[in-house]
């Protein structure tokens, strides 16, 4: 191809500072979100209100600035989240001016599914896994962003950033698409979909440090405060509303606690802590000796349980 000569411009001054690992992670996440926006027809961002979702949402605001993200947020609600989470969810969507879709599995609601009568496994399957599949089908979303990280859990460590799902929402770990360089293959047939994990390469420390640097609002439950809790077999469960079923003789006690992960309140274990600033939380996390998902009751059903759940369509 013939090109017209143009005056040679002086090379711009290059910043001597190389990009920090957080800048590299941020750029990678933004790149991933833009690819999805450009190649998929109906993307959606799954917003779980937790700290990872908060970071993912901030990255989405950055990726499309000065436009708004070209996709809605969706919360798959179980009806059992902490009150503070619902407040955060509604305020965030309102302040950022984003469309928020809330989906609660109507069959589960009709059957009165709850963590007390049905146990964590049934509650999670019906309200989260089935609810998510329903919502994706109902709105015909072909790509759903999730805030999962590869450092969270062993089967996630092996999942692609663009993770392909069959029309029945199944994940086939033995048949993943090769994923090379920064090239993502977002092509799919009607009915198929992809789950996209823009935070794949972030660690828990990266998330907290980014929240600190960027002053990202998070649910106050992450900070230590006096809260009413009961001790259930060594796990501290917060009594968030009067639906909490107390055992005979059981009385909530006030303890200074905080949460490392947030989910349904009857299924989220609190830890006793004095950490009431971000710095203190990070310090506590770095010095602690148990891994993040330990507070989640649903991971303990067996060594390969997350892999199995994922194959069935759990995020």
């Amino acid at each position: 191809m013939q090109l017209k000569p143009v005056p040679v411009s002086a090379p711009p001054a290059i910043s001597p500072e190389r990009l920090t690992h957080l800048q590299r992670l941020e750029a990678e996440s933004i790149h991933i979100m833009r690819e999805v926006a450009a190649e998929c027809e109906r993307p959606v961002m799954l917003y779980s209100i937790g700290k990872d979702s908060a970071v993912m949402l901030r990255l989405a605001m950055k990726a499309f600035h000065p436009s708004k993200p070209p996709f809605p947020l969706m919360h798959v609600d179980t009806g059992w989240k902490f009150k503070a989470m619902y407040e955060m969810r509604d305020r965030t969507a309102r302040e950022l001016g984003l469309e928020l879709i809330v989906h609660k599995n109507p069959e589960g609601v009709a059957q009165g599914i709850n963590p007390f009568d049905h146990g964590s496994a049934v509650h999670t399957d019906v309200m989260k896994t089935q609810g998510l599949k329903q919502a994706l089908d109902l709105h015909k979303f072909d790509a759903a962003f999730g805030g999962a990280r590869r450092d969270e859990e062993k089967s996630r460590a092996k999942e692609r950033i663009f993770s392909f799902r069959t029309a029945a929402h199944r994940w086939d770990p033995k048949n993943q698409r090769p994923e090379l360089w920064r090239l993502y293959n977002a092509r799919m047939s009607p009915g198929e979909s992809i789950r996209v994990f823009p935070l794949s390469n972030w660690t828990e420390l990266d998330i907290w440090q980014y929240i600190l640097l960027e002053s990202i609002p998070i649910v106050p439950l992450y900070f230590a405060a006096e809260r009413p809790v009961v001790n259930r077999g060594g796990t501290l469960i917060m009594v968030d509303d009067d639906r909490m079923r107390l055992n005979p003789g059981e009385k909530p006690m006030m303890k200074k606690v905080r949460f490392r992960t947030l989910g349904c309140y009857p299924l989220s274990g609190a830890i006793e802590s004095e950490a009431d600033t971000l710095q203190a939380i990070i310090q506590e996390m770095l010095l602690t000796s148990t891994s993040e998902r330990q507070g989640r009751l649903i991971d303990h059903d067996g060594a390969a349980s997350m892999e199995k759940k994922k194959q069935e369509g759990y995020f």
Binding site: A157, K158, P173, K174, Q176, S200, N201, A304, E307
Partner: peptide, 20 residues
């Protein structure tokens, strides 16, 4: 590091896994 159930049974690593 051998994450997937199928791998544990076969004692081999069958997919790319990322560690931090």
């Amino acid at each position: 590091v051998d994450g997937l159930a199928a791998e544990r049974e076969q004692g081999i690593t069958i997919d790319v896994a990322y560690r931090f």
